[in-house]
C-alpha cells in the first residue's frame, strides 16, 4: 500500500511525540521522514528504528536538529557526532543545513558517504544503520538532480510500530469527552 507524504509526516510526528520527544522535535522528525521518502529512501523505516532507540539527547532526531541549528558553524570546519543510530535520519537535517548555507554537504559515516544540496541526495548503497563517527562537512561538489517521489511504500511492520507509538498521544474516551469534547450534541436529523 502506498502512503501520501503528508501521511508519513503526520504519522512520524505523532509517533515521535508518543515516543517522548518534545513537539518541536517531533515536527522535525515528521519532516525528516517525509524528505527521505521524497528522495526514494525508506524514511518510515529510518524513523521507526530511530524512535525505537533512546529518547535522550543522543536520539538521532535531537542530534540532527542540533546539526541544523549549528549549520553556520560548518563554514568554519566539520562537525562530528559519535555513536549515531540510524544515520539515514541525519541526512534530512544535513539537507536543511545545505539549504540554509546554499552549499553541498557531505555526511561521512565511518567511510560511507552521502551528499546533499538540500534538494537532492546521493548516497552509497551500503549506507549503514549505525555509525561510530559521523563527520559532516561542506564540500565543493554539485549533486545530481533527482526526480522527487510523491509516494512512500513503507514496510507494514515499521508502519505498525509507528502507529503503536502514535496511539500513545490519543486520550482514551470518557463519557464526558464523547458528549461534550467535540461540541456537537444536537441532532443532525433535522
Amino acid at each position: 500500500m502506498t502512503m501520501s507524504l503528508n501521511e508519513v509526516d503526520a504519522m512520524v510526528r505523532k509517533a515521535a511525540r508518543g515516543a517522548g520527544l518534545d513537539w518541536g522535535l517531533a515536527e522535525e522528525a515528521g519532516r525528516a521522514a517525509r524528505w527521505l521518502c521524497a528522495q526514494g529512501q525508506d524514511g518510515v523505516g529510518a524513523a521507526a528504528k530511530a524512535l525505537a532507540g533512546p529518547k535522550t539527547d543522543r536520539c538521532t532526531v535531537s542530534s540532527g536538529a542540533r546539526l541544523a541549528d549549528c549549520a553556520a558553524d560548518l563554514r568554519n570546519g566539520p562537525a562530528r557526532f559519535k555513536d549515531v543510530l540510524t544515520p539515514q535520519l541525519f541526512l534530512p537535517f544535513a539537507a536543511l543545513a545545505a539549504k540554509m548555507l546554499q552549499v553541498t554537504i557531505e555526511v561521512d559515516c565511518d567511510g560511507h558517504r552521502a551528499m546533499t544540496d538540500g534538494q537532492s541526495l546521493t548516497l552509497s548503497d551500503d549506507f549503514p544503520d549505525h555509525a561510530s563517527i559521523v563527520t559532516v562537512r561542506v564540500i565543493d561538489v554539485p549533486v545530481g538532480i533527482e526526480c522527487p517521489m510523491s509516494r512512500a511504500m513503507p514496510d507494514p511492520e515499521d508502519w505498525a510500530q509507528l502507529e503503536a507509538l502514535a496511539k500513545l498521544t490519543y486520550a482514551p474516551a470518557t463519557d464526558e469527552s464523547r458528549l461534550n469534547g467535540a461540541g456537537a450534541g444536537l441532532s443532525d436529523n433535522d
Binding site: K167, A171, E176, N180, G181
Partner: peptide, 26 residues
C-alpha cells in the same frame, strides 16, 4: 486540546476536571 482514541476526533476538554492534560496538543 486533545485527540480522542475514537476515530481520532479532535476535542477540547477541561484540563482540571478530565484526565487529558498529558495528551495536550500544541
Amino acid at each position: 486540546w486533545y485527540v480522542s482514541e475514537e476515530k481520532l476526533e479532535p476535542r477540547l476538554g477541561n484540563r482540571f476536571e478530565e484526565p487529558i492534560a498529558s495528551y495536550e496538543q500544541p
